[in-house]
Design a protein around this nucleic acid. Structure first.
Lengths: 152, 152
DNA sequence: GTACATTAAATGTAATTACATTAATATTGC
DNA sequence: GCAATATTAATGTAATTACATTTAATGTAC
C-alpha cells in the first residue's frame, strides 16, 4: 500500500514531506514488528540492540558510552538498559581498573544463548522485507545514507 | 556518513539487515530533529501529527479513532494526545450527537495559528533533506512503499 | 599540588508509552 | 424487544523515556 492509502492523506506539499512521513511511518511499522517478535523472549528492541553490540565485541568488554555511540537511538539511556539486562543475567558489569569512572560490560553465556535462540526468528522476520531485491535494498540504504548528509 | 560509520558496525549479515538498521537509525535521526524543532513551541511530534490531521479536516470534526487511523504511529493513544492538546486550547472536543460513544474533535483558531507559525520553521527543516533531488526523494518513498508490501 | 574543567555513569523526576481493562453506547441475530 | 457482541473512548498501571542533575574520577593549567 502506498503511504497515501496507509495514512489516508491524499496530498503532500513536496516529495520531501512525503518522504519524511513515509520514513517515520515505515520505521514505526518495522519497529512494531520487532517489538512483537522480541516480546515473547522478554526483551525490547533497544535491549536487543545492546546485546548485539556486546556480542560484536565479545569476549572484549565495552564501556557504557561506547554502547551509546553504537546504538540506533543515540538518545537512549544505555546505563539503564544495562541495568535491565544485568537483572536478567544477560551481561556482567565490572568497574574498569584503568578508569574507575567507567564500567566494562560483557555479554554472558546466557546472553549469547538468547541471541542464538533469536537468530532464526529474526531471520524469519527479515523475509518480510524480501519484496525488494537485494539490489533494491542496497539502493534504499544508500539513499538513506545520502539523506542524512546534512548531519552535523 | 554511511550507516557503517554512524553506528561503527563494519558488516551486516545481508542487505536487508543493513536496510533495517539504516531505516530505524535514519528515522530516529529525523524524529529527533522534529522533536528539537517543535520543542520551543511546546508540542511533541505526535501532538503535531494530530494537529495536522485536524487541520486537514477543518472545519469538519473528526473522531478520535479516525485520528488514530491517520497517525504515523498507529499504536499511539489518541485519546490522551487529544487531552493534552485540549489543555493547551489547541482543539475542542464535543460528544457526537449521532453516536454518544464518539467524540468530535475540531482544531481551534489558536491551533491553526500555531500551525501557521510552525509552517516556515518546518519548511526550513525540510531543507536539510534536499541533499536528495525531488526525483530521488520520490524514488526513496516508492521503495519504502514496496518494502511494506507484506503488511497484513 | 590545587583549582577548574571535563568525562563517565548513575539517578531523580515528570512525562509519555504500552498494554490491558473498563464504561458507555450501538449493532446484530434471534 | 432482548441478549450477545462489537465499537468507541477513557483510564489504570507499570515500564520506559526525556531531560536535567549528581557523583565520582580524571585531565589540565597554573
Amino acid at each position: 500500500m502506498s503511504i497515501e492509502t496507509d495514512i489516508k492523506q491524499k496530498k503532500f506539499r513536496s516529495p520531501y514531506h512525503r518522504l519524511t512521513v513515509n520514513l517515520i511511518y515505515t520505521s514505526n511499522w518495522l519497529m512494531y514488528q520487532q517489538l512483537e517478535t522480541l516480546r515473547e523472549y522478554g526483551i525490547t528492541p533497544q535491549q536487543y540492540n545492546v546485546l548485539r553490540i556486546l556480542k560484536g565485541q565479545y569476549p572484549q568488554p565495552i564501556k557504557v558510552n561506547a554502547i551509546t555511540e553504537r546504538m540506533l537511538d543515540k538518545t537512549s539511556n544505555a546505563s539503564r538498559l544495562v541495568d535491565k539486562l544485568l537483572a536478567k543475567e544477560l551481561l556482567i558489569r565490572n568497574s574498569c581498573p584503568s578508569d574507575r569512572r567507567a564500567v566494562d560490560v560483557v555479554i554472558t553465556e546466557k546472553g549469547l544463548d538468547l541471541l542464538a535462540q533469536l537468530d532464526p526468528v529474526i531471520l524469519e522476520a527479515e523475509k518480510n522485507l524480501q519484496t525488494l531485491t537485494p539490489e533494491e535494498a542496497d539502493q534504499l540504504s544508500d539513499l538513506l545514507d545520502r539523506l542524512r548528509k546534512t548531519e552535523k
